[in-house]
C-alpha cells in the first residue's frame, strides 16, 4: 500500500514531466480540464488542473471535476511515476476513470508522451 505522500510525489513527477515537455503543453493549450485523483484503500485525494496548456496539482478533492481517476494507492503511485501503463489496470478493472471517453483517451496519450511505452 502506498502512502498519501507517495501519491503526492508521483503526481509531482508526473507534473514535472508534463511541464518540461513544451510540445505537450502546446498540444493541450485548448484542453482545460479538472482531474480528481482518488484512492480506494487509503484516505487520499488530489486534484490536477490543466489550464492553457499548464498542469498544476494540489492535495484534496475537486468540487466538480471533468474526470475522476480512482484506483488503489499502489496502482496510482506506480502509474503516475510511469512504472506501469494505465492500460493494464484499466483493462482488468483495478483502475476506474469516470469522464468522457475522449478525455480518458487523451489522459492516456499524455501519460504515453511523458513516460513512453
Amino acid at each position: 500500500m502506498a502512502t498519501h505522500q507517495e501519491i503526492t510525489d508521483s503526481l509531482k513527477a508526473f507534473a514535472e514531466g508534463y511541464n518540461s515537455n513544451k510540445r505537450l503543453q502546446t498540444m493541450n493549450r485548448d484542453w482545460n480540464r479538472v482531474i480528481q485523483v482518488l484512492t480506494t484503500d487509503i484516505e487520499s485525494a488530489h486534484t490536477l488542473e490543466l489550464k492553457d496548456g499548464e498542469l498544476r496539482f494540489w492535495e484534496g478533492a475537486a468540487d466538480k471535476p471533468d474526470l475522476t481517476v480512482l484506483a488503489d494507492s499502489e496502482t496510482l503511485a506506480d502509474m503516475f511515476y510511469g512504472d506501469i501503463t494505465p492500460t493494464e489496470p484499466y483493462m482488468n478493472g483495478t483502475l476506474k476513470i469516470m469522464g468522457s471517453e475522449d478525455d480518458i483517451v487523451r489522459l492516456d496519450f499524455i501519460s504515453l508522451l511523458i513516460w513512453g511505452e
Binding site: H4, Q5, S44
Partner: peptide
C-alpha cells in the same frame, strides 16, 4: 497520510 481535503 494526509486526509483528503485537508488544508496543507
Amino acid at each position: 497520510a494526509i486526509p483528503a481535503g485537508t488544508d496543507t
